[in-house]
């Protein structure tokens, strides 16, 4: 049975009385074990959603439920146990003097015993492929490596949700690949929902569902394939369209009809192959 792990009910948020609404009447749910990508251009309100989920900000209107608990000043310490977050800037979230200290930080905050910490440091660093860097200082790590440590730090407290808030935006292509591989590896972990916030459509292909934000509202909500099909509209709200989607359109113009919206090269080639062998 799948249950709503996160529920937004008519949530509106602004930074001050005289400020414009950053989010207006946003409602959605995210299930257990689900991977949801939230996309939108800069300023569309997508990062605000992340901060509302773990009580770094509170909405003026509406309510947010995490695993049935309402997010309030009183519940945030419990909620932060369930919601782990990785932010954009790799440097500005590395607290510890070394990799192991950083992974320990969240556990120390929760008074977890030393033995458990040592165990979990090993297992989580292993999960993100950083076990050889236990004693390394942050300034000797690449951006991608720091972000993987940040993911391990979050996993160490076994949250129910992992939020990546533009965690790849400041990385080079290799760093991005590292993070996306790490994340899709984690998807198999049981009982972990994933929310990836990005403006890169390439990164949402593997998600179960995509929330597209525009002007503080949910512009669309569907599986990636359906989102990709709306090329013109996506461009209008300042988002990119993946290569395969553009090519599929060009092929249509050239007289080749692709059966269904391709998500990646393999699918497009497969479709072309089917067409080719049919004729």
């Amino acid at each position: 049975m799948s249950t709503n792990l996160i529920e937004f009910k008519d949530v509106s948020f602004r930074y001050g009385e005289d400020q414009p609404w950053v989010l207006k009447n946003v409602s959605f749910t995210i299930d257990e074990d689900e991977w949801v990508a939230i996309i939108g251009h800069n300023g569309s309100g997508k990062s605000t959603i992340a901060k509302l989920i773990n009580g770094l900000l509170f909405p003026q209107e509406g309510e947010i439920l995490i695993d049935g608990k309402k997010v309030t000043e009183d519940s945030i310490w419990d909620i932060r146990k369930d919601v782990g977050m990785v932010f954009q800037n790799p440097d500005n979230q590395f607290v510890g003097a070394t990799v192991q200290d950083d992974v320990a930080f969240g556990m120390e905050n929760r008074g977890i015993s030393r033995e458990t910490m040592v165990e979990r440091i090993e297992s989580t660093l292993n999960a993100v492929g950083m076990k050889d860097y236990l004693l390394t200082e942050p300034h000797r790590l690449s951006g991608g490596q720091k972000q993987r440590v940040a993911i391990a730090s979050v996993l160490a407290i076994s949250p129910k949700v992992l939020i990546l808030d533009e965690a790849t935006a400041m990385l080079d292509p290799n760093g991005r690949k590292e993070i996306m591989q790490t994340v899709s590896g984690l998807q198999d972990r049981q009982g972990l929902s994933l929310i990836t916030i990005t403006h890169d459509l390439q990164e949402v292909v593997q998600a179960d569902r995509v929330l597209v934000m525009n002007g503080g509202q949910i512009w669309d909500e569907a599986e990636p394939r359906k989102i990709f099909a709306k090329k013109e509209e996506l461009r209008e709200i300042g988002l990119d369209v993946p290569f395969v989607a553009i090519l599929a359109d060009a092929l249509l113009d050239a007289g080749i009809t692709i059966a269904h919206e391709p998500l990646n090269h393999e699918e497009l080639l497969e479709d072309l192959w089917t067409l080719h062998s049919k004729t």
Partner: peptide, 27 residues
Amino acid sequence: FNERFDTTIPFQNQSMTELAQMIQRTL
């Protein structure tokens, strides 16, 4: 594409439209 279809479409910095047409002709 070339590997899959055993073809030799060259890369010559063509536009997407040109590529689509080349694929269409090849098929």
